[in-house]
Nucleic acid binder design. Structure first.
Lengths: 108, 108
DNA sequence: AATAATGTTTGTATATTTACGAACAACAAA
DNA sequence: TTTGTTGTTCGTAAATATACAAACATTATT
């Protein structure tokens, strides 16, 4: 238990974003936010087949991963994509998938 | 419990791939496979700071998600990326991140 | 002050994930 | 046949994740 992180930072960050997106409800939320202008909690809840407490929980995870941010607009709460981190995630996934991998003998 | 999947198939598939990548060990494995020609279990295990049983478990998850495939080459086991599904995942993530999202009033 | 609207937090139950050692399986070599 | 090499599977423990109802917090309205 000497070291805290055993993987390189970029790998950890990418895994963190992947984890945030590892549930269809959270993918749906991001897709919804991407195409919507105003994005209140209620609108998001309406789109999803789950209880509001669960929606709130998923939003919290996305927020903690840095992919979205919220703002109180009494009595509602407005959510939107955190563009800076969205771009960061985009870049990390892009790098990850665009590594040109060996086409040679790895023929299993 | 009437419906089996409450989200659209593309969303489910994307979430499934994200989940497979939601751990730094599995990201590392994919990165390793991407750059290596021969890729035996032992080589992968050597790269990672975890027990072989755990490595085997992670490989199983990647295999079940369709991202890799294995082949016995007695007495070793050779793993490599499943190119078809890798491309599928690449396309799904690309579409997901390249949705041009609203730049207007969602200013939280 | 009571009521309504909008979300968050709490409590809780269940399922899944992560990790490891030990046991096991398959095969080659001595 | 015994031994060694390579991985997988099993058993198990601890941590996380997922889902919901109920309670709560906040602010506006009556």
């Amino acid at each position: 238990m000497a070291q805290k992180s055993k993987y390189c930072e970029e790998t950890e960050t990418l895994a963190r974003y992947a984890k945030a997106l590892a549930h269809p409800a959270r993918i749906s939320i991001m897709q919804f936010l991407a195409k919507r202008n105003t994005c209140y909690f209620g609108d998001i809840h309406e789109e999803l087949p789950i209880a509001k407490a669960t929606v709130s929980q998923h939003l919290k995870e996305l927020k903690e991963a840095g992919l979205i941010q919220g703002e109180i607009e009494t009595p509602k709460v407005k959510y939107c994509i955190n563009k800076k981190n969205w771009k960061k995630a985009q870049a990390l996934f892009s790098d990850f998938f665009n590594k040109d991998f060996c086409d040679r003998e790895c023929s299993c």
